[in-house]
Design a protein around this nucleic acid. Structure first.
Lengths: 121, 121
DNA sequence: GTACTTGCAAATACTTTGCAGGTAT
DNA sequence: ATACCTGCAAAGTATTTGCAAGTAC
């Protein structure tokens, strides 16, 4: 059941995970969702993403695989995932220069999304 | 007085700003701090930084000047600011590729800080 | 006085914890 | 029976809002 939670692709809030699980038959309390997320995050299977809209979101970590970041639209709130090798390279190069381990990193871009730009000016 | 808040250099929590202001004579309620931060953030004079430790932090934005990001130590919680031109370049290049405006961006590095690495293994 | 700002206290939102009941071993 | 997992409800923290009082014009 804990597995069910992490099966969603995109990042979701704890509440969304709870609701989504409920819809597919598995009734879960919000407390259990948080408890499961805490465990999964500890195992490195889920990562917490903060998009500055009150409330964290969580998304599964693909074990050895792709790695993306998020762009959040300041107008509609839509979250767009993206990946960029040059960005990753820049961050990993930082490791040697900085006297700080880079166990994980997160990049958040804020601005208007393409959809809103097209819809308005 | 609103100015007093943003005069601190590093990023602080709302509560820290409140306490710091109180110490230098200006008694401010936490509510006013949040109200001022909201305004200043709207004006682009202050930016909210989320380091995933429950509670946002805020720091003044140097108008045309330097721009840094943060590395947070997973062991001691210490926050280390850093800047990296290559990283900035990578992000700005992203702008053209991504169908998303880049009005602001944030990079957070998580890992053990130099001090902790030296103190332990 | 009218308009605006402020701090306090109450209200909210999100997350964590205590606990009693249920399941597995 | 023991150990573990669960949901509910209570407790906590962070942030926002309502409001009456204070200040500026």
């Amino acid at each position: 059941m804990v597995e069910t939670l992490a099966r969603q692709r995109c990042c979701m809030s704890a509440q969304e995970i709870c609701d989504a699980s409920a819809k597919r038959g598995g009734r879960v309390g919000i407390a259990s969702v948080y408890r499961a997320l805490e465990l999964l995050e500890g195992e490195g299977l889920v990562q917490r993403v903060e998009v500055g809209q009150g409330g964290a979101r969580y998304e599964p970590v693909v074990p050895g695989g792709e790695h993306h970041h998020h762009a959040v639209c300041e107008r509609c709130g839509r979250l767009t995932p993206f990946e960029d090798p040059a960005l990753e390279r820049a961050i990993h190069r930082l490791g040697s220069r900085l006297g700080h381990e880079i166990r994980a990193h997160d990049v958040l871009i804020k601005g208007e999304c393409g959809r809103c730009m097209r819809a308005r000016g």
